[in-house]
Amino acid sequence: MSQTLLDALALLGSFDHRLLEIVGLSLRVSLSALTIGTLLGLPLGAWLAVARFPGRGGLIVLLNALMGLPSVVVGVLVYLLLSRSGPLGSYGLLFSPAAMIVAQSLLVVPLIAAVSRQIVEDAWKDYAPEFSLIGIGRMQAVVLLLTDCRFSLTVATLAGLGRAMSEVGAVMIVGGNIDGYTRVMTTAIALETSKGDLALSIALGLVLMSLILGLNVAAYSVRCWASRRYG
């Protein structure tokens, strides 16, 4: 184990532009999916926090359960959807980064919506009496609450980022792990592991973990600064 780790560290020193390509694609795919997931997930979560309708409880339970949706299931569903023989086959998106973004977005939306629903609903409990007296409508409440909770909601976004960056099941199936085109960090790790090159796997794993750590450090710093600034 320790020898493997040493080999991994030595490899890190000798990485070339191909690794940068893989890292770049990982970031591009996951950050795109995160953008889509945030744009859909936050309003969905906030709306679910303030809306009252029959079946709302069931929908919340379903959303919470979808946080645990296996990425490989999403992969198969998106595969069947985007396959040439599937309903959206004519767009020819299978085995492309776009397909990977679609799959990761589907993974990330329920997660962000579920976490933000909880955060916004907790805030809403405090604000509801005053909002109702002022006459704030549902949609205005959604906008105000999302703005008010913006710093807490970074947690929801970070959870989404972690899920997108770390999943391998969906991108492997819909991306195809094509060298130089759809190979990302996680599928590269899976490939190197199956080639028995454990040192390279661990080296890639270290890069991925540092990347996620770095993004979290950045987000945390922004949050600390912001809560000092805005209370």
């Binding site: 591009r28 795109s32 980064p97």
Partner: peptide, 11 residues
């Protein structure tokens, strides 16, 4: 949407 996705993905 597909065009946007393709742009995001840098196809």
């Amino acid at each position: 949407l597909v065009t946007l996705l393709s742009l995001l993905a840098g196809v």
